[in-house]
């Protein structure tokens, strides 16, 4: 074939392995580096040889059809899969160059450094204040009441919730609206001064206005924390992230700049999924 007519439009099913970084990120130091990660639930393999780097100044979105392994992969980043008896993880994962599976790694400490926000807001059935104070207290981050007050206030402020709750810190966290509860959970994650925040479909239980507030919050938090977000809402991925990773059947199919994934994806499977031609 004449090479000028060999357009790149031909998207092939068996695209070459996706790079673990977007082309623009080549050579940059990642916040987290996952190499050849596999996850099994018993005999069943849910994640197949995934390598990906995430960066501390970027929001990285994980997208893909339901059941493709987004949540499973996200949970490998702070070893949450350790809590699932049938789950087995192989491969290598680093946080700032440190092996998170190394014997010296304290898992509780790891989960403070790599915090997590879940799909359903899950505040403790305690006061708003206690929801935030709990983490810093068990991690021994404060030595006085006034210091704790400060952490509670600054965490709630960063989560964009302070003005709404400052006069009722004693009320139960579960009495808040869904969107407020989710921001409370984000404040709770922030309170232990994490480096990475993982979010698993944080808006799927929220109405559009509460969703917009969380998205704005993600935007505000970017730069201070590395953020990885699983979302089934592609518009949301497009709105909040700078990098997008597309997963399909446990594989990382394509990873790149969000602006490119949504305008000119390289792999046919990505194209079919994001244009609504999947399945």
């Amino acid at each position: 074939m004449n090479d000028i007519t060999t357009t790149k439009a031909e998207k092939v099913d068996t695209a070459p392995d996706p790079l673990p970084v977007a082309e623009v990120d080549q050579g940059r130091k990642p916040k987290m580096r996952a190499q050849h990660v596999n996850v099994f639930y018993g005999e069943k393999q849910a994640i197949n040889d995934v390598s990906i780097n995430i960066f501390d100044d970027k929001v990285t979105a994980f997208i893909g059809p339901s059941g493709c392994g987004k949540s499973t992969f996200l949970r490998t980043l702070n070893r949450m899969n350790d809590t699932i008896p049938s789950a087995r993880v192989t491969g290598h994962i680093e946080l700032d160059g440190e092996d998170i599976h190394a014997p010296a790694m304290d898992v509780v400490q790891l989960r403070a450094r790599v915090g997590m926000v879940f799909q359903k807001p899950n505040p403790f059935p305690k006061s708003i204040y206690e929801n935030i104070a709990y983490g810093p207290r068990i991690h021994g981050l404060t030595s006085s009441k006034s210091e704790m007050d400060q952490i509670v206030e600054s965490s709630l402020r960063r989560a964009g919730l302070w003005d709404e709750v400052k006069d009722r810190l004693d009320e139960s966290g579960t009495a808040l609206s869904g969107g407020q509860q989710q921001r409370l959970c984000i404040a709770r994650a922030i309170a232990v001064d994490p480096e990475v925040i993982l979010m698993d479909e944080p808006c799927s239980a929220l109405d559009p206005i509460a969703t917009a507030k969380i998205e704005e919050l993600i935007h505000e938090l970017r730069g201070r924390y590395a953020i990885a977000i699983v979302t089934h809402n592609m518009q949301q991925a497009a709105r909040v992230s700078q990098r997008t990773a597309f997963f399909h059947l446990g594989e990382l199919v394509e990873y790149g700049k969000t602006s490119e994934i949504f305008t000119n994806p390289k792999a046919k499977r990505t194209q079919d999924y994001i244009t609504g031609r999947y399945g």
Binding site: K268, Q271, G276, R277, G279
Partner: peptide
């Protein structure tokens, strides 16, 4: 060169 091997799940979009 035709990328559209399949139509949209939502036919009205096509």
């Amino acid at each position: 060169m035709n990328e559209e091997t399949t139509g949209h799940t939502l036919k009205a979009f096509d």
